[in-house]
Nucleic acid binder design. Sequence first.
DNA 1: CAAGAAGTGTGATGTAAATCACATCACAAA
DNA 2: TTTGTGATGTGATTTACATCACACTTCTTG
Lengths: 240, 240
Amino acid sequence: MTDTLQRKPVSQVANSDCFTEESLTKLKEIMYEMRAEAGNHLFWEGDTADKLYFLKRGQVKITKASDEGKSFILYVYNTGDLFGQVDPFQNSVHSFNAEVMENSIIGVIQQKDLEVLLWQHGDLAVEFMKWMGLMHRMTQTKFRDLMMFGKPGALCSTLIRLCNSYGKNHGSEIVITKKLTNSELADMIGATRESVNRMLGDLKRGNIIAMENNYIVVKDLSYLRDICQCENCPVDMCRI
Amino acid sequence: MTDTLQRKPVSQVANSDCFTEESLTKLKEIMYEMRAEAGNHLFWEGDTADKLYFLKRGQVKITKASDEGKSFILYVYNTGDLFGQVDPFQNSVHSFNAEVMENSIIGVIQQKDLEVLLWQHGDLAVEFMKWMGLMHRMTQTKFRDLMMFGKPGALCSTLIRLCNSYGKNHGSEIVITKKLTNSELADMIGATRESVNRMLGDLKRGNIIAMENNYIVVKDLSYLRDICQCENCPVDMCRI
DNA sequence: CAAGAAGTGTGATGTAAATCACATCACAAA
DNA sequence: TTTGTGATGTGATTTACATCACACTTCTTG
């Protein structure tokens, strides 16, 4: 979560920013490209986890379904993001689902190939370690935000993360350039649509946010920060 | 979370099991040893995060304090565990506190030194990547357990994790060989002492668990599994 | 453009869990 | 032995949030 001034233009922010141009090229060399249509799944819970995915273009969300049919959105990945699971077990399986949200072009990396690459290139290994550290930290901070500050805190944290992932500055306001339904927001914080609706209503009435042709506009970021005790961590960390 | 038969003796389970003997030796060569007394802190929120810690002996918990003075226990590390933060930012700071619970002997690794080592040794880099993946997954599964199955689910998941970290089989029962107060359990699942007390009472009445001179004994692991929809993942992953 | 689908907004009610308030209980120190 | 201290156990009350129910709005698409 960052000062509005520090924010990079939306289009440049991706978690593969951790890598240098050369490293990214090396990674790209061991990828094979595939296309996936919106609605399809890259993997399901229980599938073998032995691949990484580089989102050349598109959007993918990582979810967990509960028995009662509710689904919890853990991450949303966008163009330029790298994601997947690296485990020390041979028969490791996914605990989550990866659902394609927009038609996407995806570079697939086999864990075996990645291991060879890391083995050969020390600099890539170091960058890769840092990327993994970043991803882990993103999970931890999200965990904290969703556990410690109630549903309003979780929502405010999510709005801040959305600003960091999709925000465009308009003067002192930040437009979240991604349409989101109340249900989607609810699934991101483990709440119900109705609760989100009421909370958003409160924020609108308090002049913290506003809607501009169905996009959320954040008018008072510092208020959101206070609610979830945001510590102004790096933008790259506090994302969706 | 595993079948009782698969469970390794407590003393052998540590997250540094990801590494081969040789790799661990290399890591140990770049450590400097320090002693820390119970009650002290290895780091506080806001401190620079540029070190890893290898717990040669002792116990350390990673916590987050909320404004209202409540504290949430994210991890408890034991002898043989490696922990710490690796971030791609130069001025990265900790989001959590590390409190020493027992007098400990700790090997400290500077991130800079680690980078050199990873750069030089491909096999270590690959193992390190897997270790990081394991740690991340541990966080994710804990996240899921605490978010999706209510407080009873969170408690059951935590009891299973405690079995995996500290469990000793006694016939079909598992003794959790670590004394825990209701408050500590509460801090692990983000609940209150009273709630934990009531939930434990329910489990005792249902003959799922019992107390034997202040140690928790799990008598019906499968019941706990059902409550938190445990998928029987590897022991090494589902830990505290 | 009509009509169904998908999304929003909001009241009423139910329920899980926090909070408050004490009564024990265990045990260590004076 | 008393006294203090931390932990446990349990009822009564409050609160946050889910659930249910339904009206209203806005987007689709035939």
